[in-house]
């Protein structure tokens, strides 16, 4: 890879106070995300994947202690002001969370929540914002989008809500999308549809995606490269084929071993 990375995480450590001392949730993690690629981050729960994602978004609780650097196009995000971070979140980054059932505010309509993301940093007319929201819902595959704008989250299924979440994340046409276990809470057929959708969006919009999952099978389907995290550390970073052919770390081998039939069609969809 000769391109300059879009995002570069360097020696990132994240600690949380616990009792009298503190625990390290992420320990000196380093990896790069290149423009337009789909980087998978795998690891078991508690390995620091989600904390890393939230650190990139600047959404960790104020008690978190961060060290190291997170460079977005060369600028260190950890040194940015709240305002700069907000602007970055509103223009360059988008995030999809694990729990579609609780990630949308129950008292506002879906349309309101999408339009809010659309107009977060750009002033535009109500009509323009509505059109954009309709456009986004259409893009994430929600039928008769104009009508669904008036729906409240509780009127939609989990899969639909996750599509809405993707629409919100795409509202600012981000260059980097972070998806934290976006399909874990959903059933298998919906999972496949959403992965298809994410992959299609990447190709269409050229958005780089960091896909976090504990499922090697998912990675095999969509990832270009994979970062493996184990016990708060990055233990391996490799292209998807290389990873499946010659896993370097015993934990990676273990992961591959638990999904035996996936190695056969690594790029298949």
């Amino acid at each position: 890879m000769t391109q300059t990375p879009l995002l570069s995480v360097r020696d990132l450590s994240v600690g949380f106070p616990a009792g009298k001392g503190h625990v390290l949730a992420v320990d000196s993690a380093s990896f790069d995300v290149h423009p337009g690629e789909l980087l998978g981050v795998v690891g078991e729960s508690g390995s620091g994947k989600s904390v890393t994602a939230l650190a990139i978004m600047g959404l960790l609780p104020p008690t978190a202690q961060l060290r190291g650097r997170i460079l977005y196009e060369g600028d260190d995000m950890l040194g940015m002001s709240h305002r700069q971070l907000r602007t970055l979140r509103g223009r360059q980054l988008g995030m999809i969370f694990q729990e579609p059932m609780t990630s949308l505010n129950p008292v506002f309509t879906v349309g309101d929540q999408i339009m809010e993301a659309v107009t977060a940093l750009d002033h535009m007319s109500k009509k323009a914002a509505t059109d954009r929201a309709v456009d986004l819902l259409d893009k994430v595959g929600i039928p008769s989008p104009r009508r669904r704008l008036e729906d409240y989250p509780h009127q939609m299924s989990g899969g639909m809500r996750q599509r809405v979440m993707i629409a919100i994340a795409l509202a600012c046409s981000p260059r980097l999308l972070i998806a934290d276990e976006p399909t874990t809470a959903l059933d298998v057929t919906i999972q496949a549809q959403l992965l298809d959708l994410l992959n299609g969006l990447r190709e269409e919009l050229g958005t780089a995606i960091v896909l976090i999952s504990h499922n090697m099978g998912v990675m095999a389907e969509v990832a270009d490269r994979v970062v493996v995290m184990y016990a708060s550390r990055v233990v391996e970073e490799a292209g998807i084929f290389q990873l499946f052919d010659e896993p370097q770390h015993p934990y990676t081998e273990g992961l591959l071993g638990s999904t035996p039939d996936m190695g056969e069609q690594p790029a298949g969809l």
């Binding site: 978004m57 959404l59 970055l88 979140r89 988008g94 729990e99 809010e116 993301a117 940093l121």
Partner: peptide, 28 residues
Amino acid sequence: QDYIRTARSKGISEWKVVGKHALANVMM
């Protein structure tokens, strides 16, 4: 709640996160 995190991820102001998203749910 998760939806507060979602609101923050949109890049809207903290004032709006608290004054709109949180307050509407506190009122009930």
